[in-house]
Design a protein around this nucleic acid. Structure first.
Lengths: 309, 309
DNA sequence: TCCGGCTTTCAGCATCGCTTCACGCCACCG
DNA sequence: CGGTGGCGTGAAGCGATGCTGAAAGCCGGA
């Protein structure tokens, strides 16, 4: 009989393209994954991987098993979700994939309330860039995703996923206090043509937004520096090396030598929650959504809770 | 993550209604099944069984898991069947549920050819009455069923199953040599009104046929003796205790004091093969069907191979 | 030719999951 | 009312499973 756990490792090998990649993703050693695949090959009397010096590729039989694994894991997850639904209160494990700003700005409060109210529930967090969050949820690695979305830089939502709006966050420009634009109380997009940009890596909504907005004005932006951590970005700004876009959510106090100026019209960065359709009625998911919306309100930002499936 | 093997155990408990029944069916001890269920309860944080002094009953959560288990096992079996189909030759395990006459009359030759031609294939046999054969196939315990079917005593075919006709077997009457009808060369149904019948247990087609045919003539048959083994039935006939219907298939030499007389018109007992729709293209199944039809031809009986889905 | 990333193999060890045996429970029956 | 038997559970034991870490094999690229 096929073993779900082994099928899951095979699927991980397919997704990551290598034994060691799958091992890292699953938290095993490559040795363990290799042995599991070998055992699966023995059990099914097939050859699943073609080994070459530089990694492995899947055979047709393996592709077929991966497809079956997808079905099986989806059915199994759905069954577990319904079990929790029958119980009526959050339990099991809820894995949240979240963009960094939400990890510090939104999650701590919401997850603290969630776990203290429901001791049966185990919560895990994975910090990832916006696009990756959606992928992690779609793949079943995470159950709930928190990702940004903005006009002009729409977040692609994989099929089988649903989402709702948690809130909208106005984005401002942080620039060096010595910058020629620093004295202004408000800036337009056109004012920013020609500045040196500091951006997060591709895959974050702010990166795409800068690129697409500036191109829309007819100018290719200069993406001078790339830093994923917000503190690093601000340090670069303080050193006068460029300007950066930051939302209110999760933004700490600004370091000396950095000023923040609103844009007019203000670009809104939307925070969306994402989940697989099959798990939408799982209490852990609905309760987490409720607490995230409440947390957003408590933080005192503006609009929240308009559903946008 | 749910474990397929444990879900299968839970399903066995549901089907058999008790831990020990499930254990017997799965080839484990009751203790092992009890421990598996207990572990499943811990993993899912649910209560699956209500224990009373005289056995167990399933909770709602358990019923739900059983339904999911059905889905999962079906998908897994289908995936394995397709794997074998890709390979193009029989392999894995083929479990055949068969009525007793076919076990001795048809299976030995066909299965011998099957296993010698395909050493990768493991074959298992389960002897069961006609109705039970169909159930075993439907439940996934067996992959192929061989069961009888007759006019007036139609074999119910559970949904999700397909079937084909292997052959038709004329049924004759065996009666004591001293019986008043023994000198006859042919008998009609009406001749048999009022005789004492020896039948297999309910669930075998011959049992139902006797009952329904005699009732159709307006007489309630006297089911005087019940014996499942053919040799036992014939011994009862030899002792002058009644008459019995037997087909040609799997009928050994008649003991002294027993004669066999054809009926006119001859009631035909049809031998059908049954399998789950999902496994119809599995090479082990198609090859077994081919060899069963060939075996039937080699035995020299008449009609064979007319498909009757 | 060596290096480096990848996979596999091997030995060791913890864990799992089975069996056996013993026990507790309660309906049933004398 | 107490014995009996079927049923489920729990502890001990033991083989199988499945992980880790070390080491070796393989092959493309410098």
């Amino acid at each position: 009989m096929l073993d779900l756990s082994r099928l899951r490792t095979l699927r991980a090998v397919a997704v990551h393209g290598s034994i060691s990649g799958a091992a890292a993703a699953l938290g095993y050693t490559p040795s363990a994954v290799s042995q599991q695949i070998a055992k699966l090959e023995r059990e099914t009397r097939t050859t699943l991987l073609e080994r070459h010096a530089r990694g492995v590729t899947l055979t047709g039989d393996a592709e077929h098993l991966v497809a079956a694994a997808g079905q099986l894991l989806a059915v199994a997850q759905e069954a577990e979700a319904r079990l929790e639904e029958r119980r009526g209160r959050p339990s099991g494990t809820l894995t949240v994939a979240s963009s960094p700003t939400a990890v510090r700005g939104l999650l701590p409060g919401a997850l603290a309330k969630l776990t203290s109210a429901h001791p049966d529930l185990t919560v895990r967090t994975i910090e990832a860039l916006d696009h990756a969050c959606a992928e992690l949820v779609a793949q079943g690695v995470a159950d709930l995703g928190l990702a940004h979305d903005a006009e002009l830089a729409r977040l692609p939502v994989p099929s089988g996923l649903e989402r709702t709006l948690i809130g909208e966050d106005p984005v401002e420009v942080c620039l060096p206090a010595a910058h020629s634009l620093a004295p202004r109380t408000v800036l337009s997009r056109e004012d920013l043509v020609g500045v040196d940009w500091i951006t997060p890596p591709p895959g974050a909504v702010c990166h795409d937004w800068v690129q697409l907005t500036m191109r829309g004005l007819g100018h290719e932006p200069v993406l001078a520096h790339q830093a994923s951590e917000a503190a690093s970005q601000l340090a670069l700004v303080a050193a006068g090396l460029g300007v950066v876009l930051v939302g209110r959510l999760g933004r700490g106090p600004l370091p000396d030598g950095v000023v923040s100026i609103p844009l007019e019209p203000a670009p809104m960065r939307q925070v969306h929650a994402l989940w697989r359709s099959g798990t939408g009625r799982r209490p852990a998911v609905t309760e987490a959504l409720r607490l995230l919306l409440q947390e957003w309100r408590d933080l005192g930002y503006e609009s929240a809770g308009r559903p946008t499936t």
